[in-house]
Lab assay of single mutants.
Amino acid sequence: MEVRTIKVFTTVDNINLHTQVVDMSMTYGQQFGPTYLDGADVTKIKPHNSHEGKTFYVLPNDDTLRVEAFEYYHTTDPSFLGRYMSALNHTKKWKYPQVNGLTSIKWADNNCYLATALLTLQQIELKFNPPALQDAYYRARAGEAANFCALILAYCNKTVGELGDVRETMSYLFQHANLDSCKRVLNVVCKTCGQQQTTLKGVEAVMYMGTLSYEQFKKGVQIPCTCGKQATKYLVQQESPFVMMSAPPAQYELKHGTFTCASEYTGNYQCGHYKHITSKETLYCIDGALLTKSSEYKGPITDVFYKENSYTTTIK
């Protein structure tokens, strides 16, 4: 009895394709271990004539594949690729409408935090270190965002349907971005203890939790000093293409032309909904596939993004 075979390709990165001759009487799992086709788990399936010449994702289970996976995804987590594939199996079914010149995501599976993050990423200057993220990001900007969303979920250790947080998501993504040249110098002034300067680099240099107003941050924000008295913390120097200011959701007025974009969060910790506000020729609110415009805006804002380049204080 002759062994019926077909020729397929296996890959971990969709760049390096490895030619395989597979036995049609055995499952993919018996031949390769966990195997995925377009995100779908085909591990328990036997090869079919229609699979001839198709590319299958496999887990990096030998040295060659491990090197290829690390170079593309910059992670050695053995569960990463499987999590990416199972997320992709959902995100490829989502709709990605162009809204006001940006790629958004039609609401499904509690994905409003991903839509808000995706919209924000198209408006701030950011370059990702893992080629996987950078490639998928370019495709997302062009309207094909399924891979990018699935990668975000995998890097953030999230599953489809789980509630997510924009600030946490951005923080994970910033860790995989090139923020080497970003720098922030802060000064804390206390009447009792004097003053202390701190220099922050990388992710810490672009994120701040405690106030939404970048102007206020430049002037000074009140913080408790270690001595128990009130101290003032203010920005001395900022070198970065953008800054992200966050605070627990509270009524906040966004003035046209003073910011790049913002995240609105309605609801409580267990259950809520994100919308995205962007400042173009007027203010726009993007909620999944829905767009509304207004000249002014007041609502429960939790993150505001500002364009920056270089700032030095005039406070002496």
Rank of each mutant, 00 (worst) to 15 (best):
G164V: 03
Q134E: 05
G39I: 07
S295K: 14
Y72C: 04
K7A: 12
H48G: 11
V185C: 02
A140L: 13
T313L: 15
L59C: 13
A247Y: 09
E144H: 07
G299I: 00
V236Q: 03
T226E: 12
C149E: 06
S279T: 08
T260K: 02
T278N: 06
E144C: 07
G194W: 00
E281Q: 06
N16I: 04
C225Y: 01
E2H: 07
T169E: 00
I301Q: 01
E162Y: 08
Y265C: 00
D287H: 00
Y274S: 00
A146W: 07
C193R: 04
V8R: 04
T75M: 13
R83Y: 06
C225E: 07
C225P: 00
H18S: 06
D62P: 02
T91G: 04
A108G: 07
F128S: 03
L290F: 12
T19V: 13
T103A: 07
A117M: 08
L17C: 15
E264P: 01
V160R: 00
I223S: 11
V221I: 11
Q270S: 15
T5K: 14
T27L: 10
L186Q: 11
G143D: 02
C271S: 11
L173A: 04
Y96D: 03
Q216C: 09
R184A: 10
N110M: 08
R184K: 01
V3W: 10
Q122V: 03
S79C: 12
D109A: 04
Y311P: 13
S294M: 15
G299S: 04
L118M: 08
R4K: 13
K280A: 13
T19M: 14
T278C: 11
E281R: 05
G161P: 06
L17Y: 15
V304F: 04
V42C: 15
Y73T: 02
T159E: 15
Y57R: 05
A247I: 05
T260G: 01
Y297V: 04
N147S: 11
G33F: 02
T169Q: 06
L163Q: 05
D109R: 04
S294A: 13
W107Y: 00
G288V: 02
L186T: 14
G53C: 11
A150W: 03
L200E: 08
W94A: 07
C225T: 01
V221L: 13
Q98Y: 10
F242G: 00
N187D: 08
I286L: 03
F128C: 00
Q238E: 03
E52A: 12
V3S: 13
S294N: 10
K158Y: 00
T75K: 10
C112K: 02
R184V: 05
M209D: 11
L173Q: 02
T10N: 06
Y252R: 06
Y269V: 15
S213E: 06
Q98L: 13
G272R: 00
V304W: 01
Y297I: 08
V236W: 10
T10D: 06
T19G: 13
M207R: 07
Q31W: 13
T19W: 08
T211E: 14
L254N: 05
F242T: 01
E253R: 08
S50V: 12
N100Q: 15
K316S: 15
R184P: 01
G101Q: 11
A132G: 07
A205T: 01
D287N: 00
Y252G: 02
Y269K: 15
E162R: 02
P47L: 04
Q251F: 11
A69Q: 11
M207F: 07
N89T: 12
Q31V: 10
Y155N: 06
W107V: 01
G101V: 07
A136R: 02
F174Q: 00
C227E: 00
A69V: 05
A132T: 01
F174K: 06
D13Y: 09
V188A: 05
L163W: 07
T282K: 09
Q122S: 03
P47H: 00
A145Y: 01
N100T: 07
F70G: 13
P34T: 13
K307W: 06
A289K: 10
E296L: 09
V8L: 08
K293E: 14
G39Y: 09
V203I: 15
D38A: 09
I315V: 15
R141L: 10
F70Q: 10
Y172W: 11
Y172R: 13
Q270E: 15
R66Y: 08
E144W: 05
D135P: 05
T266C: 09
L102Q: 09
H276D: 01
L65C: 04
F80C: 03
V3M: 11
K93P: 06
N129A: 08
T103G: 01
L291I: 12
D62C: 06
T313Q: 15
G143S: 03
N14F: 15
L283D: 00
V12N: 10
Y234H: 05
A177S: 08
F32W: 00
S279R: 01
N49Y: 13
H18V: 06
F32S: 09
Q122D: 05
V203S: 09
G257C: 03
S240H: 07
Y137K: 04
L235I: 09
T211P: 03
K7F: 08
Y36K: 02
D23F: 10
V188M: 08
F305C: 02
K44A: 10
A108I: 06
C193N: 06
L283C: 09
S86V: 11
Y172S: 14
A150P: 04
K201T: 14
L133V: 05
G220M: 02
T211S: 09
T278V: 13
A87S: 07
